[in-house]
Write a protein that binds this DNA or RNA. Structure first.
Lengths: 272, 272
DNA sequence: CTCAATTTGTTCGTATGTATG
DNA sequence: ACATACATACGAACAAATTGA
């Protein structure tokens, strides 16, 4: 018999028992299978996933080693671990929260290049500074690496406090400098996967999902003073966006207290 | 000899040649290897990845089938495809942009449950409405599925225009209703992986990275009228966050034209 | 206490895929 | 292309522990 999963397997080439384990892990972490609960028997799982008994056992074995499942002969297999939110790192979506979240950071510098190639800038990323310093570091929290930062910092900024830029997070350092006026700052996030170097630095499997962040800070003269490519391990991060945050987006909000303009879209769409 | 990659392999269980292929695919898509360029010889790649020649050949074979590489005997291996930004779907970070982006959407309803269980609400998600309608749909753009939406919509809202809620995106429909006053709306994003059902609906490999979005809209009375769990395929989405967007974050901005308050943090931190 | 049903644990044989040299 | 080693997956049979009638 050919398993339904095998169709996907043909594309992804991930071992079947790993896939089954992933599905079961999801069920535990989503709360569908609660702690202490007895899960379906091996035979039921066999039928559900349309795989051999040994394959289900391998999957259970994987989750057992992760401390999520406990199988007991004659009784069944049970969920052992409490559901926990692994996403402890809240990515900042504003300058102040970003700066604050970085203040107690422990970066470990791995490469410093005082006269490297300039960074690549896209449309809307501002103008290149004359010279850049390249600073590569690994960021730690609770002794665990959670991101790799590849930063191009304008040389003029770096020279204002080289020692501190070498030992602490750059953005709080910039924020603390009264002489720097900011023009714009933005981040672009996409999901990627770990290449060998990143996998090694972040201690994650090669090919594991990552969150790739391009963060750019432009000063009041339009110069890109801070250009960073940051790779986060994706399994610990969370991102919260408040949709009604800006004035423009608040026009439909209740009360109408704070500058709420009662302006509805001119084009009245017909109800379907 | 034991490859460096093998250490990761032990953790991830992804075949070595798939891993090598992924790394090379990254290099092509990131532009490190440009179209038309001759890439390193098999022998060089052997040495770099510390794998057997056959393994490199298998990796090249994979990318050849994807149309990214072309190997020609006696000449070398060449990059055939153009670098393209696959991240065509910009996730909205504001109410108006979100509503606008959904207006021309083509949802395909797959499950409608008029009297289902209420959604699970976390802290800060508002109060439960009396009854909910559950609407599951797959969102398409350019004939391609890009997200699966599992939506709990307050029954009172649904009843205001059931036909339209069954055939069009819900948020624009809510936005168009003058009688609804919004209190709060937020999204929380985490990276996950595709279970069999999601993989099938989105036509992605099982276990592929996904972007999981929990989107909640609360009305002016604190009732959660819209509770959605959305799963995006991660390979097509991009998220842009403007860090200096809000008034509070703009206090250091240049010019000081628009309400900029010249207030620096009271705590003056000493330069390290 | 015994028996039977249930459920996990173990082992065999076979086939195929992965990786090395 | 070949020989070797190990991982993956199947199906089937049997062993061992638990439970309840």
């Amino acid at each position: 018999m050919v398993s339904k999963l095998l169709k996907s397997y043909d594309r992804s080439r991930v071992p079947l028992y790993i896939q089954v384990a992933s599905v079961m892990r999801n069920r535990i972490q989503s709360g569908l299978w609660s702690p202490g609960q007895k899960i379906s028997t091996l035979e039921e799982l066999e039928r559900e996933f349309e795989v051999a008994r040994v394959t289900v056992r391998q999957a259970v074995e994987v989750l057992n080693e992760e401390g999520l499942l406990e199988a007991r002969q004659g009784r069944g297999t049970f969920v052992s671990s409490e559901k926990q939110d692994r996403h402890w790192l809240q990515l900042a979506t504003g300058w102040n929260s970003l700066v604050t979240s970085l203040e107690d950071n422990v970066p470990e510098m791995i490469v410093v290049e005082k006269a490297g190639a300039p960074p690549h800038l896209d449309e809307g990323d501002g103008k290149l500074a004359a010279r850049y310093v390249r600073l590569c570091s690994v960021q730690y929290k609770n002794e665990e690496p959670y991101s790799v930062v590849n930063l191009h910092l304008a040389r003029t900024i770096f020279d204002m406090n080289p020692k501190r830029f070498m030992t602490a997070a750059a953005l709080p350092t910039i924020d603390a400098m009264d002489s720097i006026a900011l023009g714009e700052a933005h981040q672009t996030l996409v999901v990627g996967s770990a290449d060998p170097e990143i996998a090694d630095l972040l201690k994650i499997p090669l090919g594991a999902a990552t969150m790739q962040c391009r963060c750019i800070v432009i000063d009041d003269k339009g110069i890109a003073i801070y250009v960073a490519n940051i790779v986060y391990r994706s399994d610990c991060i969370k991102l919260r966006v408040d949709l009604l945050g800006t004035k423009a987006d608040r026009k439909k909000r209740a009360g109408g207290g704070d500058n709420a303009v009662s302006l509805f879209p001119a084009k009245s769409r017909k109800a379907l």
